[in-house]
Nucleic acid binder design. Structure first.
Lengths: 137, 137
DNA sequence: CTTGAACCTCTAGCGACTAGAGAGATTAGA
DNA sequence: TCTAATCTCTCTAGTCGCTAGAGGTTCAAG
């Protein structure tokens, strides 16, 4: 049995965030001391680690809720867990592709400004001028 | 002179978002008709395009404000514009690196679940188990 | 028993919008 | 000129995933 601060230390999740997760139903309401302080056990610790890990992967809290509810599921229901992971993978791939495009364009803009800037900074001009971009965004 | 809806059509920025930018001081307050409706000119259109473009590059509104205030600046002040662009480029590079890590891990998790899932889905197990990750995140 | 750290609840704020209510303005066609 | 449809207006509140602070209570060590 440990306090919320101990949970925080063991998982790296900040104290207010733990309470926030409880409020959102991601963590079950823990037991309390006579003085109304939360006390957690290993089960809660594992779940918080699960949440933290899923958050680090960028999963929204709703998806995490759903994954949690799949604990102990079987057969077809598990396909849902699989598809949540797959969807997230897809989302991440798309974000990577988009960011790469942006990087290319920022490179263009930055190098445009590398030399002597006589009149108007080319960064500003390049931002106003969408034409030089290589894709639609 | 065109309405807010026309501005929206021409830039792809939604109407409430245009009003939001005005409220935040990114767009100057436009003229109004006798009936209190906003009327914009080409200058405003150009600025909104600038904002939209910068937003697509992921720049926060504060940075955009600063860039706008650099319009017509010269010499050393322009280095500031350059460094905003460079900083953003760095941020984007970091985000790409991080997302690539996540994608690797999601791939690991997903493939762990590809075969027959007998007891507990491996997606769920993999999310609970941080040990298999290849890096710190 | 006292002290000081940790804990409690509650409210408000962040960024960058988005959605909706309820009222007024404009514009095109009959 | 009237009417109907479509904009537009302001205002408030909600989204997501937290974070910060106020003001008060409880716990654990010495």
């Amino acid at each position: 049995m440990f306090s919320i601060g101990e949970m925080s230390r063991r998982t790296g999740v900040k104290v207010p965030t733990i309470r926030f997760y409880e409020e959102k139903g991601l963590l079950p309401q823990p037991g309390r001391t006579a003085g109304n302080q939360r006390r957690y056990d290993d089960t809660a610790l594992k779940r918080l680690n699960f949440i933290r890990h899923a958050r680090e992967l960028g999963l929204p809290l709703d998806d995490i809720s759903e994954l949690i509810s799949l604990e102990g599921a079987e057969g077809g229901e598990l396909d849902r867990a699989h598809s949540i992971a797959q969807n997230q993978r897809q989302r991440i791939r798309e974000r990577i592709a988009k960011l790469k495009k942006l990087e290319r364009e920022l490179t263009r803009i930055s190098t445009a400004c590398d030399g002597d800037h006589d009149h108007v900074c080319d960064v500003l001009r390049a931002l106003g001028d969408h034409g030089g971009c290589d894709g639609d965004h």
